[in-house]
Design a protein around this nucleic acid. Structure first.
Lengths: 239, 239
DNA sequence: ATACTTGTGGTCATATTTACCATAAGATAA
DNA sequence: TTATCTTATGGTAAATATGACCACAAGTAT
């Protein structure tokens, strides 16, 4: 019952049982007005035309899988040069209706202000959805999304990656709100401040918030060197 | 320059640019006499006959990737019903000399006492190697091993997974030695005890060590319920 | 009995966390 | 202008956790 392919060049048979189609699917997180959001695209072609799903596509033979993820995201949404990390391979035999397709999930954290999403390639539309408003997605994409959300909640406590969702300059309060939103907890402003400042990860800037109707807060940027160090040696943020 | 395959049944051409061979490679950790070890196999056939590498092989179309990992490990080494977790997909275009092969890495933690390793299938030998004595391995297997070691060091501080390397019943001292070995640090007996017991993860048994030439230590087993809870809500073991 | 080894329980000084409170620094409304 | 509101920021005290170390217990080996 094994299907066989013939290699056109060599003429030799190749057992299809070990040949698999591999795709990439990306869960792109953004943070806007206090809400965690995910970038979804509407498929412009293929068997699921018109339906929403995660941005993704085929891996080419000549590229690394990280490279494929970056290429696909750029093609489909215009996102370029972003924080992207491999999540997990999903390979249930029946996850794709037309045959066995294994997909490698990636998740990305982007600063919303830096990008204008533009649907491209095989995507007819691309939009940010609030986590609470995710529609039914194609294939097992809801499952992949759920997995990446759990992963994000874990990662954000174990590595200083939250900044990738915030603008270059941010206040401690905004950072705290980000953690509160992702982890679905409430925190104490004062304790959060002390805890975070103690690890020297943030550099205070010579700037304050503008155009706010209350006392303007100090702006901070994160320190890439300490970031590097903490990422290597481990980071633990307890609540 | 794209290679094409012909589907024997339908007669249609399939672009080989999206067809990839996918394998599984497993890093199996064990712990014996105070040393962290890895299970390697000697290949009995194929282009790398006689060389050592990680146990692994092709994924079949009809099985999940987790299923493939379990099957391969059972076939090659006799290991069955073990703690196995997906690590990462490795997909550098040139990692495999005969063409593009993507491999999905898994790591496993096994209780050495429970298994007798027996080489099988396409493995002519299977042996435990101490971490410090790993030879040169085929393909990028040294790289995969190194990655999984870093991963293990991180995971062991963030989830209560160390028990999977120990016998059912163990002493606090043995547990500490395990942590010391994996993390390459020295710890204080007394403080380790206090810290670990406080989280109620361990159930003291009505048994003591046997046949030791010193005061016999209390034996413990871990509590699966608390284990479950800690795994979900997060676990942090600082040193 | 003595020495030796590991287990187990403690102390104490120090550091961290938590739950608050108080004041500062603006903006806005009366 | 003054009062009031909101958020920022800095503090305090009690509870908890940590790290270094000690002392005795409970066995084995000589």
């Amino acid at each position: 019952m094994l299907k066989k392919f013939i290699d056109k060049e060599s003429g030799r048979e190749v057992e299809s049982s070990v040949m698999n189609a591999i795709t990439i699917d990306c869960v792109v997180f953004g943070f806007d007005k206090g809400s965690l959001e995910v970038l979804l695209i509407e498929h412009a072609e293929g068997i699921r035309k018109g339906e929403w799903g995660l941005p993704g596509g085929w891996i080419k033979k000549s590229e690394s899988i990280d490279g494929a993820a970056h290429r696909l995201l750029a093609d489909l949404t215009g996102l370029d040069d972003i924080y992207l990390e491999q999540l997990k391979a999903f390979g249930s035999p029946d996850r794709f209706p037309l045959g066995r397709v294994i997909t490698i999930g990636y998740y990305a954290l982007v600063k919303r202000e830096d990008y204008n999403i533009k649907a491209g390639f095989t995507a007819s539309d691309a939009k940010w959805y609030k986590i609470a408003d995710i529609p039914n997605l194609i294939y097992d994409h809801n499952e992949i999304l759920e997995f990446s959300l759990v992963n994000l909640r874990n990662r954000v406590r174990q590595a200083p990656i939250g900044f990738n969702l915030l603008p270059e300059k941010f206040t401690l309060f905004e950072l705290m709100k980000l953690y509160e939103e992702i982890l679905a907890v409430e925190m104490d402003k004062s304790n959060f401040r002390r805890k975070f400042l103690r690890m020297k990860l943030l550099n205070p800037l010579d700037e304050k918030q503008q155009d706010v109707s209350h006392r303007a807060a100090q702006l901070y940027a994160f320190d890439p060197k300490i970031y590097e160090k903490l990422t290597k040696k481990g980071f633990s943020f307890e609540f």
